[in-house]
Computed example of a mutant assay.
Amino acid sequence: MQTDDRADRDSYRRAVGRFATGVAVVTTRRDDADYAMTINSLASVSLDPLLALFCVEKIARFHDAVLSAGVWGVSILPDSAEDVSRFFAHRGRPLAGQLDAHPHHHGRLGVALFDEALATLECRTAAVHDGGDHSIVVGEVVTVTTPADGSPLLYHEGRYRRLAE
C-alpha cells in the first residue's frame, strides 16, 4: 500500500485509474470528413435539459474539429469492441477512411454512430469549459438510441476489463 499523499502526475494517474469507466467513441463531422476518438470521460450532466459531457485533449486533432462542428455523437462500446477502442485511441492514424472497417451510419445530426454500440447519443455543443490541458465539452442531447443489448467495455487501472457474471 502506498502512503505518500503528495499530489503529482503519477500518483494522480494511479488514483483515478482505480475508478472504472465505460468506453465510448465520440465522433464529429467537419468539411465532409468524419473524426473519431476513444473516450472514457463521458458523463451525464442533467436530465432537464438533457446534457452530457466529455473531455478532449487540446492538442488532439479532434479538439478543433468538434469545437468548430458544434455537433458530436457518442457510441458506447460493448465488451466485444476492444479492437475498436484501441484503434480510435491511436494517435496519428489517417483521417480518410478511418471508419471504413467499422460498421456505422450517420445520425440525424450527420455524425457517425457505430452499429454495434450498446447506446448512442447525438449532441449539440452547449458549452465548452477550460479544463487544463483538456476542454470540457457539454452538449444538449438531441437523440438517444439503444440499438443492442450486452455488457459494456470497461477500463480500469490501465487495462480493458469486462463485467463478471
Results as ranks from 00 to 15, higher is better:
Q2N: 09
R6Q: 15
A7I: 13
A7G: 13
D10I: 15
D10G: 12
S11R: 15
S11A: 13
R18T: 11
A24D: 00
V26C: 00
T27P: 12
R30F: 15
N40D: 09
L42E: 00
A43C: 14
A43M: 15
A43E: 10
L50C: 10
L50Y: 07
C55M: 10
V56N: 00
I59S: 14
A60D: 09
H63Y: 05
L67M: 11
W72I: 07
G73M: 01
G73R: 00
S75F: 02
S75P: 01
S80G: 08
A81G: 03
V84N: 00
F87M: 03
F87R: 06
H90D: 04
A96K: 08
A96I: 08
Q98H: 14
D100V: 06
H105F: 10
H106P: 03
G107W: 04
G107I: 05
A112G: 03
L113C: 04
D115N: 03
D115H: 06
D115A: 09
E116D: 09
L118H: 04
L118W: 00
T120I: 08
T120S: 10
L121T: 08
E122A: 05
R124E: 07
A127H: 14
V128P: 07
H129A: 12
D133I: 13
H134I: 11
H134M: 10
S135F: 13
V137F: 03
V141G: 00
V142N: 05
V142Q: 12
P147F: 07
G150A: 06
G150H: 02
S151E: 11
Y155V: 10
Y160K: 03
L163I: 11
L163N: 06
E165Y: 11
